[in-house]
Amino acid sequence: MKDLARALRRHHAARIKRARRFYFGIDNSTDLRRLGKLLNTPTPCSCWMCGNPRRQGELSVSELLHALTWHEDA
């Protein structure tokens, strides 16, 4: 039986490129290099608005929701 890992990886790459075509209010399908960057790095930078909130000493959205539901249950 043939290994389908390469086909699956290419399928997901094409799917993600289609989904991220209009990131940041720009049609990225014309610039293939930018679309390739969006495949692996969906955030444009690592500033305090775009980057990981834990780097700035904050909690992520899922961690905030978990803490909120935990406090309501107690």
Rank of each mutant, 00 (worst) to 15 (best):
L64T: 14
F24T: 07
E72A: 12
G36T: 05
L39F: 07
V61L: 06
C47H: 03
T41V: 10
T30A: 13
D31K: 03
Q56Y: 14
A13G: 05
L4K: 10
F22K: 05
A5S: 15
R10I: 07
S46Q: 09
L4A: 14
C45H: 02
L32Q: 13
S46G: 14
L64A: 12
R6A: 11
E63T: 09
P44Q: 03
C47V: 02
L59E: 04
H12G: 09
T69P: 09
E72V: 15
L68K: 13
T30K: 11
S62D: 07
H71V: 15
E63Y: 09
A19W: 01
G57Q: 01
F24S: 06
D3F: 05
F22D: 08
L38N: 00
H12Q: 07
W70P: 15
R54D: 04
H11I: 13
K17W: 00
R9Q: 12
L65T: 13
N40F: 10
A5T: 11
T30D: 07
D3Q: 05
E72K: 14
H71R: 12
R18L: 03
Y23G: 08
R21M: 02
N52L: 04
S62M: 06
V61T: 14
A74W: 07
D3P: 04
L35T: 04
S60T: 08
S46P: 05
N40C: 15
G51N: 02
I26W: 05
R21V: 05
H66F: 08
W70K: 15
H11T: 13
D73N: 15
P44D: 03
I26Q: 06
Q56T: 15
T41S: 09
C47Q: 00
K37C: 10
D31Q: 03
D31G: 03
L8C: 11
A7N: 12
E58N: 13
A19V: 05
W48C: 15
R6T: 15
A5W: 08
N52C: 06
I26L: 07
S60A: 05
N52V: 09
F22E: 03
